[in-house]
């Protein structure tokens, strides 16, 4: 075979060379790219680990007249490489609805995640970001509130003198209450 002959004269050989070059290239770029991508996607494979029962307050600390109290939920939590035995993971409002019955409202606004504040003098919840307002029971009490749903409730159990709840965070900005996983 003539060494100087243009490989274009041999379409099959030329195709093989092109395919090989493509494969070698894809491999060289693909392996590091994929290794990065896999690690970058790591958060998707990590569950939030929320939803466990946590003791948050004593029953007597929740006023009997139905006024909400703000309570910080403290429990064990991992944040990447840090593990804490007891750190605040969220804040809820507890409200007594019957002598031994307590309702918990999540303090995170269902609109876009700001901290909803309870205003004693208005006897209502108010979000300082886009002015959503909620009644003491968490329902939207002003139709102009941009929040797509009432404040999120959490599952509560009164066990003797202690108030327990399953703490979760929820997706904001959508009408349905969907727990973040």
């Amino acid at each position: 075979m003539d060494a100087t002959q243009d490989s274009g004269a041999q379409p099959r050989r030329r195709f093989l060379a092109e395919a090989a070059a493509g494969a070698v290239g894809a491999c060289c770029v693909g392996v590091p790219l994929a290794s990065g991508l896999v690690a970058w996607l790591d958060p998707l494979s990590k569950a939030s680990g929320s939803g466990d029962w946590i003791q948050v307050a004593s029953l007597s600390s929740v006023p009997t007249d139905g006024t909400p109290v703000r309570v910080t939920v403290v429990t064990g939590k991992s944040d990447a490489w840090t593990r804490d035995a007891a750190v605040p993971v969220g804040v809820v409002y507890l409200r007594r609805t019957a002598p031994a019955q307590v309702v918990a409202l999540h303090s995170v606004c269902p609109h876009a995640g700001c901290f909803v504040d309870y205003q004693t003098d208005r006897r209502a919840f108010f979000c300082p970001c886009h002015d959503s307002t909620f009644a003491v029971d968490g329902s939207i009490n002003d139709p102009r509130s941009p929040s797509p749903r009432p404040m999120d409730t959490l599952t509560v159990e009164v066990r003797g003198e202690a108030v327990w709840l399953r703490f979760q965070n929820f997706r904001s900005g959508i009408p349905a209450k969907v727990a973040l996983t």
Binding site: P43, S48, D79, A80, A112, G113, C114, R171, G173
Partner: peptide, 30 residues
């Protein structure tokens, strides 16, 4: 927090995208 929770409302990919941006389900080191 407001900005990243807005990512979550993008249809379909929103929640996953939010998790990738935030580096987990909650704010932290990542």
């Amino acid at each position: 927090k407001v900005a990243t929770s807005l990512i979550g409302i993008v249809p379909l990919v929103g929640p996953s995208l939010q998790k990738l941006v935030v580096g987990g389900s909650d704010y932290g080191h990542h």
